[in-house]
Computed example of a mutant assay.
Amino acid sequence: MAGAAAALTMLCAPAEAAPAHEIGGSGSASDGAAKVPDGSVSPAGANDWSCPPTAAHPRPVVLVHGTWGNQNDWNVLAPQLKAEGYCVFSLNFGRDTGSVMGAKPGVYGTGDIRASAGELAAFTERVRDATGSAKVDLVAHSQGALVARQYLRFEGGAAEVGSLVSLAGTNHGTTMNGLASLLPPGGSSGPAADLAATYVGTAAVQQLVGSDVVRTINAGGDTEPGIAYTVVATRLDKASTPPEATFLQAGPGATVDNIWVHDVCPTDTFDHGPLPQSPTIAYLVQRALDPAHTGISCPQH
């Protein structure tokens, strides 16, 4: 069991540590090394609590990061959305210092997904109060999609959200590129899973395929009535695997648009961690929020 926990830890490390270390735009050089944004400062364009929603974009946009990340994972997308006239908000959630990764500065998204959904609910309520908006739109990356769906189903979010854009979300759990099979069936519980959680955090283990959290969120269907879902996957994903497991099936009263990044831009090479930085993602997010949006710019490599 210790070997399984070590393998899971090794795979998790590149899976979502990348955003906190690779998102550009807010770091500065010090002693020859780039400073890692620690989430203490909002992304440019985000968290202007006096922002008035417009008739063109009446719903504020709340950005929900993934495992081991923080609000600076949105340093690229947040100012782009702000420039398009959206009121943009971002939060840090899931700070749990009880694991090796969770104790690191600036690392969030390690705590219990159910508790994180409560944090998202409280933050969204604050956004709605500040803007006077009845509903918000959510844009969520990786674990953030599960947190958002937990909020929609169990924290009253279905009445407070117009749309959810899921980017490489672990919506049906992840096999972690096959290493999850090293844990016992239902591998979010038991000694091996507990050991893994002491390294990677509770939320990482809760995202394994077949976990209690994943099963509970998906019980009774993937969607909530009245919500428009846009679900984006990349075939380069090595963290949310198999990549197509992110896709959702529409239930009564909901709409779902499942999209492969490479069907839109075949040249896009952004994988799981840095996906929120992709120009393709910027286009797909804005199109999801406003179907009239045009101006796609595929990455050139």
Rank of each mutant, 00 (worst) to 15 (best):
S211K: 07
E16L: 14
V136L: 00
S42R: 08
G98M: 12
V147H: 03
S40D: 11
P242Q: 05
V139E: 10
E155W: 03
G109D: 01
V200G: 09
A145N: 02
T280G: 11
V127T: 05
Q206S: 11
D96Y: 00
V264C: 05
H21L: 02
A168N: 01
H57P: 05
L120W: 02
M101Y: 10
P243W: 09
R128C: 01
V100Y: 11
K82W: 11
E155C: 05
G106C: 14
V165G: 14
H65W: 02
A148H: 11
P252Q: 10
G221R: 00
Q143S: 03
L152C: 03
T124Q: 00
S189A: 15
D38Y: 00
L183F: 14
G39P: 00
G24F: 04
A18G: 14
Y108V: 03
A204T: 11
T246N: 05
W260Y: 06
T9S: 12
V62F: 10
F270V: 03
H141A: 01
G66D: 10
Q80V: 12
A2G: 13
A219G: 10
R287P: 00
V213Y: 13
G69I: 02
L167I: 15
A5Q: 08
W260E: 08
A115W: 01
A250S: 15
P191Q: 07
R126Y: 11
A115F: 13
G102W: 10
R215K: 14
T230H: 04
V36Y: 12
V161H: 02
D257V: 14
G210P: 12
A83T: 14
T175F: 07
R235F: 02
A192I: 14
H141T: 01
V213D: 13
R287I: 08
V205I: 15
P43D: 10
G190K: 06
P191F: 03
P37A: 07
Y151G: 04
P43R: 13
S163C: 07
S42E: 12
A34Y: 11
Q150F: 05
T131A: 07
P252L: 06
H262V: 10
R126G: 11
N70S: 08
G118I: 05
T131R: 03
A117N: 03
G66M: 10
P279L: 12
G94T: 11
V165T: 15
I23D: 00
S28E: 15
P242D: 04
S188C: 13
S163L: 05
A204S: 15
A130D: 05
G111N: 13
G39A: 02
A228C: 06
P299I: 03
A168M: 02
N177Y: 06
V107L: 00
V139Q: 06
A5S: 06
D38V: 04
F247V: 05
V200S: 14
H57I: 08
A34V: 10
R59Y: 11
P243L: 11
G187C: 07
V256T: 05
K35L: 08
G94M: 09
S278A: 13
M10Y: 08
H57R: 07
A254W: 04
G251T: 04
Q150N: 14
S26W: 05
A239V: 12
A282W: 12
L289C: 03
G162N: 04
P243N: 10
